[in-house]
Design a binder for these strands. Sequence first.
RNA 1: GGGCGCUUAGCUCAGUUGGUUAGAGCGUCUCUCUUACACAGAGAAGGUCAGGGGUUCGAGUCCCUUAGCGCCCACCA
Length: 914
Amino acid sequence: MTNELPKAYDFKSTEPRIYAMWETGGYFQPWNDPNKPGFDPSVKPFVISIPPPNVTGELHLGHAMFVSVEDLMIRYHRMKGIPTLWVPGTDHAGIATQLMVERDLLKNEEVTREELGREEFLKRTWEWKRKYGSIITLQIRRLGASCDWTRERFTLDDGLSRAVREAFVRLYEKGLIYRGPRLINWSPGLKTAVSDLEVEYSEEDATLYYFKYMLKDSNEFIPVATIRPETILGDTAVAVHPEDERYKRYIGQTVIVPILGREIPVIADEYVSMEFGTGALKITPGHDPNDYAIAQHHGLPIISILDREAKVNENGGRYQGQDRFEARKNLWADMKAAGLVIKEEPYRTTIPRSQRGGEIVEPMISTQWFVKIEPLAKPAIEAVKDGRIKIVPERFEKVYFNWMENIKDWCISRQLWWGHRIPVWYCPDGHMTVAREDPSQCATCGSKDIYQDEDVLDTWFSSGLWPFSTLGWPEETPDYKYFYPTSYMETGYDILFFWVARMIMSGLEYTGQAPFHTVYLHGLVRDEHGHKMSKTKGNVIDPLIVMDEFGTDALRFTLLVGSTPGNDMNLSVKKVEANRNFANKLWNVGRFVINTINSLEETRKAGKGTQGDGYTGTQVHKETGREVKWTLADSWIWAKLQQLIRDVERQFQNFQYGQAGQQIYDFLWSDFADWYVEVAKIQLQNADLRLQTVETLARVLDICLRLLHPFTPFVTEEIWGHLRSALLQSPLSALAQDWSPALIIARFPEPREPEGWEEEKIADFALIQEIIRSIRNLRAEKNTPLSKKLAATMAGGAKSALLKDQLQVITALAGLEAAQVTLAETLDEKPQNAAVLVVGAVEIYIPLAGMVDETAERERLAKELAEAEAHIARLEKLLASDFAVKAPPAIVQKERDKLALYKETAEKIRAQLQ
RNA sequence: GGGCGCUUAGCUCAGUUGGUUAGAGCGUCUCUCUUACACAGAGAAGGUCAGGGGUUCGAGUCCCUUAGCGCCCACCA
């Protein structure tokens, strides 16, 4: 017998080879391609656009998660025969990339981007992109991603840039984009505006400063509290509640801004809470969103006191040029000296910080570009409400609605260089020209002296177009026409607002269609104790290292089986190791089956074996003309497999991928490997059973490989190849094979079996398993090694015929001595000095001359009897209750049968104990 | 303040139309190198499914409630 396959699965050499085979073989491209002859537009495709990773990114577990899930979805649909497209690509990631390049320039050349100038800096960034941009896509390939790399896109590609301009201009023309001074979140570190979403709030210790707002020409004052004293410089009013008895009389009077001496009014506004702080509120419209709103109501002036770097500007008097925190300290000291300070107290509050840079974000008045979002949000809400888009898990629909219904205008301009430059030109007269193509003159006055807006667009503006811009939009390309709208949008719930919501809005706005019909949200990957992974905590698991150690399949299977939709998962290396073991188990089952097929081949070649040409994938008996009588084990594993296929298909429909994977795992390991393969070894000894056994082995393995392929593509493909060649079949890739259960069953037609045959076979085999287990159990209790063969007497009653057929299996798997096993329907004379095992209606006597002491054996039986009696009591009570009338008859019958069985068992044990 | 999720074996978690004796992996303990696999096989111990109440013949699963943990949104200076 030849044994070419190594003992352990070698993923290291297998994975790159297999991936190259797939990619160069064109397996990732849709078979129904609108750009190729023979295209059939009536066949509906399945499409996913990849969530584009940052072009400078390094692979992390978030990538591993989405690739695993999406590749699973893609492979599943592809194997169903559906033309399947997974569009890959990368995102230019404005801030992230620019920061990275800036850091690099500073470190290596000691130049800042300002010193380099815009043009040169962009040149360097493109160089950087060309150099490092392929790393992430190579790493995604390592995960086994079956995307169509011939359709790879980058958000700054010409085509996608055109899409961005088209989108911008269209919105502008509809009046949905406007420019103007507004209070925005300013990141002093990055020196750019950021959107509300890019601000994170963290609870921190701060100080609440109490001070006096002196009334003009008076010794009276209004006490006011603030966390940011430097904003006093920008105060334009003090507000109190109109009903506040303490301050009512001051309303309409004038107070003096400390140090600066400006005069500002005391106003009344119900927004002010009488209970909080001093009950009086200083109004700084230039640097606080709430104050800004109040100022709008009251027509108050707005004063900006900070510049781009958050240093005090010319409005700050003597503090001009000081950093905001420095000014805070100095101003407070000066106020103290002036006797204006009341007290300071520690205070816990939420501080807004930049998501990228981490520094405190400053609300500031700044001229920016905005998208009027409400007209876009409305249809986006509708699309989910009326079911055109379904979100999985469903609870996120509520989160989505809540955000969408309270959405504020979106600040889309960024003061960065790396990105899509805003397609707006200005002339000296202040006219704006908004154009799809770079204009040469002002559209209003014809002036040739025009310059483009310096700002670029928020990265999410272009990613919002991703599902259609990658397919050619705004051109009506064949790809766009056929593959759009896409099918699933799969991503982490953390970017539901950032990305998913914006894709829905822009998809509906620009293409008039929902860009996908299903949003599937996965959870975040945390460490094994549920903590967020972070470099500072040192608990980061690097997927590349994990793959090096345990293989891609193990990582993928772990991520898929260990997670439920929308819920975070805790990952530990231990779990990956366990799944590496699973891949190895699969490998070895495969090895066993393949070696068996090959050995059969040899047997046949030697002219000693059965006739026919071996396994063909159809019924052997037809070709040999011989009636093949399947053994119980054959039927059992086949029945279990039918159930598995149905279950897994159902789980896939419900997005229960983890559950599906778990079930396949259990079937393969616990049913197929632990039981059927062991039985097969016995059946293979029997020349009459050999052919059907090999056939069953091959069939079950075949289907397992298909079911598992979307989860663990590499190892299944590798075994598949060996299996095909052992069966002398053409070497087709597993991923080109049918997954569909209907197709599987059609491929292996079963002789018609009566209704309920599956349950019957499973129940019968369960009895055999129980018998074997109970003997093994006894053996373990008595510390009897398997090498010591035991004698046994079995009385099977109605099950005698079944037992007789299975005697060989029981004998072998329970370690009995064949010559000393006797079987009877009933026993008139019970063997003496024997252990008694009662399994359902079957009694087993194992004479263990001297090995079992009488007392221990009686104790064991007494325990068993007590258990049986407990069950009898429970069941009798149950059956006497309303259960018998109200529960479905089938369930009641099951309980009745159980009761009868327990009674019988109890009887037998009692007899034995006498 | 509003919303959501979680609480099941020592650890990490499954358990989706409510229905056998609640499962898995890891860990622990006993045996076994049985010709696919020691990345293994056979067996064992370990849970009043967070607490309380309710609906039901029947609840880990549905409803109410309490507590703890976590997340998201909003942000009273």
